[in-house]
Amino acid sequence: MTTRERVIAIIAEQALLDPSDVREDMTLADVGIDSLGVVESIYAIEEAFDLTVPFNANDPQASEFDISTVGSIIQAVEGLVAERA
């Protein structure tokens, strides 16, 4: 599985959707993930990729980790994976 596929699988599981229904232009709100779901998704990403994601729920927009869309999350995770390599 690519990073993209793994991130989409995590988001789909959180949103109770089939991965094929999750598109990169969707926001987390579009797929039905609320603020608690965001925190849980980020935790699942950290566990899956063995990463630490810089994210503060008090100010999601300000963190370096862009969660505005599914695509931006994939890019951010790819960035963290590359940084670690």
Partner: peptide, 20 residues
């Protein structure tokens, strides 16, 4: 820490710059 609502540097209630 897991809930991601803690501030890493200070408690600034009601301030626009608050972060947890």
């Amino acid at each position: 820490e897991g809930l991601r609502v803690m501030s890493p540097d200070a408690c600034r209630p009601f301030s626009a710059t608050r972060n947890g």
